[in-house]
Nucleic acid binder design. Structure first.
Lengths: 217, 217
DNA sequence: CGGCCGGTCAACCGTTTGATTGATCCGTAC
DNA sequence: GTACGGATCAATCAAACGGTTGACCGGCCG
């Protein structure tokens, strides 16, 4: 009973098996249950509660092929009474993902290429109610807050995302219910902040810096 | 000794642990060694050979943070005498990746979200000298050969990739030592084949259809 | 050998984008 | 309450882009 009860949420069977193997190797961890997507995670959580079982930490992937994605699932879990802390464990490290996860109430953000010991520490921190960030993620957040001049406004990111889908200025304008002139103004601001001078390189840079997520299937 | 000896190559400790756990659960498999990148894989392979140990199948990831990537590693392995079959196991399914892997001599291409049983079958097929493709991958290849009108020429893909980095027509022209007029001609062909009418949506579609890989760090 | 296709180039023209300047409205912070 | 930043819009001009047409060359296939 002294062991930490963990709920694994990841759509890859391989990764679940890996986490299970890795975590149970540490004596103070056990895997309470596994789920392949957000819906299943919520079901597992309520099922375990009905049985009077504890869940101390939820280890959650963000990208889940089908079903509820990680961010929505995190938000849903955090709305429960006495909600367990949710630790994000994913391969992606875009600004958009990280900020969304944090806003949804995640108490940590780790990357899958982290060594086992780092993941273990993060789980322990999360269970203790503390925040754990992967070094890469921490660095990104630091860069983000330390250089506010490069920080795009939410509106600008919104435009950037539409831009990346291949829309023209006019189409973006219609989509956002603003005039084409406004779209151009935003774009000029975006180019200035990113240090580029055309839409394609803005998209390329934004994808590279992980400000937006690329469409990818 | 009747068990299949497998070499795992993946830069994620979590995934290696998962594959090890999953594979050794099937009695006829054992994991001969693990490696975190292509160089390490080659070292392991020669080390095992020196010890007189067999390696029946190499399970290889494509994206490896640092070190030799999966495609080059596959090519290098296949150049050895009595080279073991290499089964690609990755998250990415871009046309470019798949074709490169096949050209490098991979004898199979699986995706990480595949269920254990499918992975097991693929390993068995590879060991038997046969080819194993994930359903998604097979579908992509079929689509690719069955609809040659949509098939971009290598040159066109080359352009598309430069396009995705944000270069202007003139910059692309300089990069490829051709005239700007030629670049435009290629682009018109690309737009036609992809069914779009501007560069940004061409990039978006190409990324979506996984014809090119998006820059991503 | 005569198409056909892929790659190369050119000229023309209309459309879209990008740069610049300047303005209004609305919150929030000092 | 005013000063500031974010969001909105307008007008203008130059540069880049996209569409069209037509042309040339080299390799490959029937």
């Amino acid at each position: 009973m002294g062991t930490l009860q963990i709920l694994l949420v990841d759509d890859h069977p391989v990764v679940r098996a890996g986490l299970r193997a890795m975590l149970t190797e540490f004596e103070d961890f056990s895997v309470a249950a596994e789920a392949a997507d957000g819906d299943a995670a919520l079901r597992e959580l309520t099922r375990l509660r009905a049985l009077g079982e504890r869940v101390d930490v939820v280890l959650m992937d963000l990208q889940m092929g089908a079903g509820m994605d990680g961010v929505t699932a995190t938000a849903a879990i955090r709305k429960l009474d006495a909600a367990p802390p949710v630790l994000i464990l994913t391969t992606y490290d875009t600004e958009a993902d990280i900020l969304a996860a944090v806003e949804a109430g995640a108490s940590g953000y780790m990357l899958k290429d982290a060594p086992p010991e780092q993941i273990r520490q993060a789980v322990l921190s999360a269970a203790a109610g503390q925040t754990a960030l992967a070094p890469k993620v921490a660095a990104l957040l630091m860069r983000r807050i330390s250089s506010p001049e490069t920080a795009l406004t939410p509106r600008e990111v919104e435009l950037l995302e539409l831009l990346a889908t291949g829309l023209t200025n006019r189409a973006i304008a219609r989509q956002l219910f603003i005039s084409e002139a406004t779209v151009k103004t935003h774009l000029v601001h975006i180019y200035g902040k990113l240090g580029v001078d055309n839409r394609t390189s803005a998209i390329a840079l934004a994808a590279q810096r992980r400000i937006i997520r690329t469409p990818g299937s």
